[in-house]
Design a protein around this nucleic acid. Structure first.
Length: 689
RNA sequence: GGCGAUGUAGCUCAGUCGGUUAGAGCAACGGCUUCAUAAGCCGUGGGUCGUUGGUUCGAGUCCAAUCAUCGCUACCA
């Protein structure tokens, strides 16, 4: 009986940004698994592609004054170069903006239509007559139709948890303009996921395809209620594929992105004279997806639903990993910890990161931490001190005579290390790399102890011990080779170098089971450069410089003689949050922005993000405002300073009290929140024009 | 607040079906060695296994409660 073929994917990186160390957790995790399977002799292809569609790309292209095609082509070559630098061994790296993907999207779309899963009836939606746009759910607020709580979003109630459509809200208002939305009919296309509820229930809860915590999460968050229809269309203008039977509408990027897995496989098939059906319509192939926990929903509900409906094979397993933190904190450009792949490669050996991630990664979806000190210590101690050291302690002694004609008695070292192969392989198979690394290092420890006890450097000095010297070195080099086989999925370059040194390439896991004898060896050369902590620091420093071209001091200074170079600012922020529709000066004047002084800042212990601010607009005009800036500022930093508030905002009853305004700030949130201030001279109560 | 997890030596973690004095690596300390990329080997110290209660002849391991931490989610309008 032959084992099924394997089709393995990593998530498609978005064409709007460069690859950084956080992304690499996934590509390295996946690559290790793929290389392991190949080493075991499994037929295994590794498929990926750039994810290219969507609003963000459109905006970026517009901003850079070139076509979307140019933008995504550039980014694709940068991605491929970065991946190659980290030895990610894709069999094919495609793009979602390909004819194959368009064809597959169309095919799958037809299947969904035929299965009656597409709702294409005209839908009554709320339209903002002032902003001139339809309103997504989160842009509409009103009173919950069930529990009558005021100020709820258009999709669900935060009080009673009910879900509904924004048209059901009582007294809806647009959060864009404050206008009362009118009902307007527009064609929207939805996939009726609820029709697949029963299937998704059994597929996700079977225990065979998902980690248990993911199955629980889905059960608790989604499967307990009816599944909501999935909006898969976006109106023009949109960079993507126009829906063939619905002109003027485009597939939402998350519709065509996973289909890109299939499209990219198809491109590989065309290159290699293979049949797509053998990979996506066959029980002789197992499909394994590796993804991050942030995109769980798409891959565990929507995607299986689509595949099932369209008659494609379902994934055998969706392997989900956590995020990367650096020195215990979220990656931050300001701290230089969001290191781009290309920057890393300028300073450090990619194998070090591969090994470090391997030593940290298990089958759970916990976040993993890259502690920079531990990184340097571990890599040096394990790889240089234990593994590579075995070769450098012995290879030179037998450069001229080569390996012994027969494998000598070694007290059972080789046999026991060979026997450990099964358990190590099992750990790799289960994506439990940290376990595998521990077992491998145990073998390295034993081998080093053997070197110590047999003292080849002493044997070398005695002319009568030359045979024994050759024997000892043969044993050590064979143990070294075993380690290289076991580490080959993680450290492909080291495996190659080992093959060159012993003049016998490592090709199969079973190479660990038979010792190499009676063969010449090459002149020994250093296999790995020790990792210098200074280089880690240099990498961090460079990452800081890249992302903070404009110092805050420069911004605050009115006497700066040269304006900041705008061209150095990245377009990421704008792309992450696209521009709102045009508004008139009248629209703007509806918003009354005022300078205010924070007279008191208080802790809200029960809230994770909120602080309670008492602000003064001058005189006895005092109000209370809640602001989600707890993680970014201390109370001391806040008290006394001037801020800009939205003074005429409708007060909102919150869990902790009434909020009578809104403090303005920029930034993505969390610790990255930056309050708007005013230059000196402004006083509380002044309006911002 | 809801959901999910985690809490074992200074740090990172292992402890399989509950079964003798709880382990490893790194760090620290002492010694040995000098073949090797200031690498290696031996030894020492260090833990009331978050806390409390329960089940049991016996619990790090099972159950309950509790505290703490983390993640997702909600509250940032």
């Amino acid at each position: 009986m032959t084992l099924p073929n394997l089709l393995v994917t990593a998530a498609l990186p978005y064409a709007n940004g460069h690859i950084h160390l956080g992304h690499l957790v996934e590509y390295i995790q996946t690559d290790i698994w793929v290389r392991f399977q190949r080493l075991m002799g499994r037929r295994c292809i590794f498929i990926c592609a750039d994810d290219t569609h969507g609003t963000a790309i459109m905006i970026r292209a517009r901003q850079e004054g070139r076509s979307e095609a140019e933008v995504i082509a550039d980014m694709q070559s940068a991605h491929e170069r970065d991946f190659a630098g980290f030895d990610i061994s894709f069999d094919h790296y495609g793009s979602t903006n390909s004819p194959e993907n368009l064809e597959l999207c169309s095919q799958i779309w037809s299947s969904l239509r035929q299965a009656g899963l597409v709702v294409e009836d005209d839908v009554e939606q709320l339209f903002d007559p002032v902003a001139g746009t339809f309103l997504a759910d989160r842009f509409v607020k009103g009173t919950c139709p069930l529990c009558k709580t005021v100020d709820q979003y258009g999709d669900n109630c935060s009080k009673c948890g009910a879900t509904y459509s924004p048209t059901e809200l009582i007294n809806p208002t647009s959060t864009l303009s404050g206008a009362t939305p009118v009902k307007k009919t527009a064609k929207h296309l939805f996939v009726r996921l609820e029709a697949l509820h029963e299937f998704l229930d059994s597929w996700t809860q079977s225990g065979e395809h998902l980690q248990s915590e993911i199955a629980n999460y889905l059960k608790g968050h989604f499967l307990g209620n009816p599944l909501r229809d999935w909006d898969v269309s976006r109106p023009a203008p949109y960079f993507g594929f126009e829906i063939p039977d619905s002109p003027g509408n485009y597939w939402y990027v998350w519709f065509d992105a996973p289909i890109g897995y299939i499209a990219s496989t198809w491109q590989w098939c065309k290159k290699n004279n293979e049949k797509l059906a053998d990979w996506w319509h066959s029980d002789q192939t197992e499909i394994h997806h590796f993804i991050g926990k942030d995109i769980t929903y798409f891959h565990t509900l929507f995607w299986p639903g689509v595949l099932k409906s369209a008659g494609f094979s379902l994934p055998k397993f969706v392997h989900i990993h956590g995020f990367l933190t650096v020195d215990g904190e979220k990656m931050a450009k300001s701290k230089g910890t969001q290191v781009q792949a290309a920057t890393y490669l300028k300073h450090l050996d990619p194998q070090f990161l591969r090994y470090f991630y391997a030593s940290k990664l298990g089958p759970r979806l916990d976040d993993i931490d890259l502690n920079l000190t531990e990184f340097a210590n571990k890599v040096n101690s394990d790889l240089v001190g234990k593994v590579v050291n075995l070769a450098s302690r012995t290879a030179r002694f037998i450069e001229t005579v080569g390996l012994a004609p027969e494998y000598p008695h070694d007290g059972g070292l080789f046999v026991s290390a060979a026997a450990a192969g099964d358990k190590i392989a099992q750990a790799y198979e289960q994506v439990d790399y940290s376990r595998a690394m521990r077992m491998i290092m145990e073998i390295a420890d034993q081998a080093n102890a053997f070197v110590e006890n047999t003292a080849p450097w002493t044997l070398k000095k005695d002319p009568n011990q030359q045979v024994r010297l050759q024997e000892v070195c043969t044993i050590v080099l064979n143990l070294f080779r075993q380690l290289c086989v076991y580490l080959a999925p993680v450290l492909p370059k080291l495996a190659d170098q080992c093959g060159q040194l012993l003049q016998s390439p490592i090709q199969h896991w079973n190479d660990s089971q038979t010792p190499l004898v009676n063969s010449p060896i090459s002149k020994f050369e250093h296999l790995l450069q020790r990792l210098l902590p200074e280089k880690v620091q240099a990498m961090i420093d460079e990452s800081k410089v890249e992302s903070t071209p404009v110092e805050s001091e420069t911004l605050a200074s009115t006497t700066a003689d040269a304006p900041p170079a705008a061209s150095q600012d990245s377009g990421d922020a704008l792309a992450a949050e696209p521009m709102a529709p045009v508004c008139t000066i009248e629209d703007f004047t509806k918003v009354d922005l005022r300078v205010a002084r924070i007279v008191k800042a208080e802790e809200v212990p029960e809230a994770k993000k909120l602080v309670k601010l008492t602000v003064s607009l001058g005189g006895d005009n005092i109000r209370t405002v809640f602001a989600g800036i707890k993680a970014a500022y201390t109370l001391q930093q806040l008290e006394g300073r001037l801020v800009v508030i939205v003074a005429n905002l409708q007060p909102r009853q919150m869990k902790f009290g009434l909020s009578e305004g809104m403090v303005t700030a920029a930034g993505p949130g969390g610790t990255e929140v930056f309050l708007l201030g005013v230059d000196s001279g402004a006083v509380p109560g002044q309006r911002v024009h």
